[in-house]
Write a protein that binds this DNA or RNA. Structure first.
Length: 277
DNA sequence: CGGGACGCCTGTGAGC
DNA sequence: TGCTCACAGGCGTCCC
């Protein structure tokens, strides 16, 4: 589910509520992608700081005495979501794999496929957090990301532009939905080799990506099935998708039939007329 | 070294 | 109705 917009929507819906809250207890359910890396009871007594996002990860600082302080790095995987759970619903279900009971409510990670993770790290720039974030590209809204720099990065890669976007090494944040949608807006064939993109087309792609990601955040993300923000609200971007999931349907812009191809084991949707090589 | 396939895990919908 | 198969929002690891 969660690409950058869904993770950012989650962050926004949680940050103010949790800031300053005290951790009362924690509970781990079935194993997630990586082990937690600390004892659940060692989290009690720490104070939640301001939630931050890096790529599709959330960083939750946990303040306390120097020997105990650190934070939790969260990832929602394919099917994860975070919710502030009301008191009456504290009984956990079979897909609820991590609970953080705080003075501001209970934060619960629900993740049927368990590709997500919650990992303790003593600091964001210490392992294991440092290692997990080490290969991430720059944030798409970072002003330091310019068309010129993105173009230079593109010229060094021979894979398809779709695969390059998904890798998160050019810029982080685009997953399968937003990579497809941004390439549609930019009018670029997803099969085009990264190093063949002209400077002007890279400029259009960067603008399209920023437009799509910011619009998705405004709309509360995309809810295909599971995604909810921390208050249980579904996103609405799915109704603005122009190509993703629309194989065989008419392109809203030109009427051509939307196609699906497979690139690196992932579906890619595109309009064969609007998107060119 | 870059690039692509694999595997992790569970649920769902389509087709027979 | 019940079975099997394809596919699903991510990403670290392995192999060529």
């Amino acid at each position: 589910m969660p690409e950058l917009p869904e993770v950012e929507v989650t962050r926004i819906s949680l940050a103010e509520r949790l800031a300053g809250a005290r951790v009362l207890a924690a509970r781990a359910g079935k194993p997630l992608r990586w082990p937690l890396g600390c004892q659940v009871h060692s989290l009690a007594g720490l104070t939640v700081g301001l939630l931050a996002r890096r790529g599709k990860y959330l960083w939750m600082p946990l303040e306390g005495p120097p020997a105990r302080r650190g934070g939790l790095l969260w990832h929602l995987g394919m099917s994860g979501s975070l919710a502030l759970v009301a008191g009456a619903q504290r009984e956990h279900g079979s897909h609820d794999h991590f609970d953080l009971l705080t003075t501001a409510g209970m934060l619960r990670l629900t993740d049927p496929r368990r590709f997500g993770a919650v990992v303790w790290s003593s600091a964001l720039d210490a392992d294991p957090a440092r290692r997990l974030l080490a290969k991430l590209g720059p944030e798409p809204f970072d002003p330091a990301v310019t068309a010129a720099r993105l173009h230079a990065a593109c010229r060094a890669r021979r894979t398809s532009i779709k695969a390059a976007l998904l890798s998160g090494e050019l810029v982080v944040g685009a997953g399968n939905i937003y990579a497809c949608e941004a390439l549609f807006v930019a009018g670029i064939d997803p099969r085009l080799r990264c190093d063949r993109l002209s400077r002007v087309r890279v400029e259009r792609l960067l603008a399209a990506l920023r437009l799509i990601l910011s619009r998705a955040i405004e709309l509360g993300g995309t809810t295909l099935r599971d995604f909810r923000d921390a208050h249980g609200m579904a996103g609405a971007f799915q109704s603005e998708a122009r190509v993703y999931g629309r194989e065989g349907m008419a392109c809203a812009r030109c009427g051509s039939t939307i196609r699906r191809v497979v690139q690196q084991q992932r579906s890619t949707f595109f309009c064969p007329s609007c998107q060119t090589r």
